[in-house]
Structures are given as C-alpha cells and as structure tokens.
C-alpha cells in the first residue's frame, strides 16, 4: 500500500487499473439495472419498490464515502501521505453528490408512499445533516489556499464529524420518536431473493463507480499539481532572466 504514496507509481498503477474499473462499473450497472427491472415488484408498494435499488446504494455510498474520507485524512495526517490527502479531498464532492441523490430519491419516494415530499423522519434528517457536513468539509478545502495546511485542518473537521455522526444519529432518532410516531415501516414485507440479488449488484455497482470516479479525480489532482509546479518553475526562470537583462541594461547605461 505504501508504495502508492509515490505519485509516479500511483499514476502508473492507476493507469493500468482504471480501464478495468470502468468496464466493471459499466458491466455491473448493466447487469444490476436488468435485474432491477425484471425482479418481481413488492406486493405493498408496487412499482415504487424499484426506487429502493438506487436509494439504498446512494445512502450507503454517502455514508461510506464519509468514513473513507476521514480514514484517508487520518492516514495523511499521521504518515504525511500526500496521496491520502488527495483521496480525502476528492472523495468529498462524490459523497456530497450521493447524499444529495439520497435526499432527492427519498423525497420522491416519500411523496407517493407517505403523502408528503418531506417528513422530518430520522433517516432523512440524518442524511440531510450529513450533506451539510460534506458542504462544510468542501468549503474548508476551498477557503484555505495552502493545500498542506488545508489537509491538516480538514482532518480535524473530518475527525470531529466522525465522532459526532453516531451522536447526531442517536439524538435525531430520540427527537423523532418524541415528536411523531414512525410514519411507515416496510419491515413487514420480506425481501424476495431476486430482489436481494438485484440490490446487492447495485451496491457493488455504486462502490465501483465511486472507486473509478475517485481514481480519475486523484489523477487529475496529480496532473494539476505537476502543471502548477511547472508553471512556477517557468515563472521563476522568467523572473531570473528579466533580472539579468535589466542588470545588463543598467550596466550598459552606466558609462554615461
């Protein structure tokens, strides 16, 4: 694993792996979606049960990406591992997107199932808070220009967030049961085996999608830093040359 700390090695390794990752992702999505639309419908919810196959994997990915992000940040913090910092930085927008998709699909499911777009249901509320935490985390990387400093500060944000996620979940559930009874539970209906297979394939597809997107983002980040370093070098050379020519010009003028 630690060999990957070297960006050049990572570029070579990820360049070989990336095509396979993308093909696997596309294949899993094709297979999963085929399974989803041939799986039997839930007796209670009818066609609505098909929302589960994208809603649940999005929710899982939104949470898993946060944990991944925090772990990557820790690795970067403890072992001064620049690639881990880049992984954390680039996991955040992907996680935020899936948190948003979870909220949107949840709302679209809530309208026909519960009769309203938004209920302050414990799970919806938790995901909403998770989305806000992603926004705060992304804001840190944007407002702190020095990337090394930003990585260290972002680790603290991610760590404090990670400690708080269970507390927030617990308190939101407490608050929810205090204010309103559970809206609807589908636990009564057992999952049909073919539904379960379809769901598991979709989980795998989302995981591979996350990995592919993350790899591409990290490669972009490495390219950006390399380009920046080259630009800085060119700038320094230009300044040095200008200094030389001005000095020459001054020297030439001196005899007057």
């Amino acid at each position: 694993m630690f060999g990957l700390a070297n960006p050049t090695k990572f570029m070579r390794f990820s360049g070989i792996l990336l095509p396979y990752l993308i093909i696997t992702t596309l294949g899993l999505f094709g297979w999963g979606l085929y399974m989803v639309f041939t799986a039997p419908e839930d007796y209670l919810q009818g066609p609505l049960s098909r929302i589960l196959y994208v809603h649940a994997p999005s929710a899982y990915l939104a949470q898993a990406a946060y944990v991944f992000m925090a772990l990557a940040n820790f690795t970067g913090y403890i072992w001064r591992h620049p690639l881990a910092d880049m992984a954390a930085k680039n996991a955040a927008p992907i996680g935020a997107t899936f948190a948003l998709l979870t909220i949107i699909t949840g709302m679209l499911w809530g309208k026909p199932a519960w009769g309203t777009w938004w209920v302050w249901d414990a799970r919806l509320t938790s995901v909403f808070i998770l989305f806000i935490m992603y926004l705060g985390y992304i804001a840190i990387w944007q407002v702190i220009e020095d990337q090394v400093k930003a990585a260290r500060v972002a680790t603290i944000v991610a760590a404090v967030g990670l400690i708080n996620i269970p507390i927030i979940k617990f308190s939101v559930e407490w608050w929810n049961t205090l204010h309103q009874p559970a809206s609807l539970t589908t636990s009564g209906s057992a999952i049909h085996p073919s539904m379960l297979t379809a769901l598991l394939i979709m989980f795998a597809a989302f995981t591979f999608l996350f990995t592919s997107l993350l790899f591409i983002s990290i490669r972009t980040e490495i390219n950006r830093r390399r380009a920046r370093a080259m630009e800085m070098r060119i700038l320094q050379q230009n300044i040095a040359q200008t200094n030389l020519s001005t000095r020459a010009a001054i020297n030439n003028q001196e005899p007057d």
């Binding site: 098909r50 929302i51 699909t105 679209l108 499911w109 309208k111």
Partner: peptide, 12 residues
C-alpha cells in the same frame, strides 16, 4: 407510481 419511479431513475 410509475411516474415517480421514472423521475427517480432520471434524476439519479
């Protein structure tokens, strides 16, 4: 119901 499912898959 189908409209909602279509909307979900389109948005995702």
């Amino acid at each position: 119901f189908t409209h909602y499912v279509t909307a979900v898959y389109t948005l995702v």
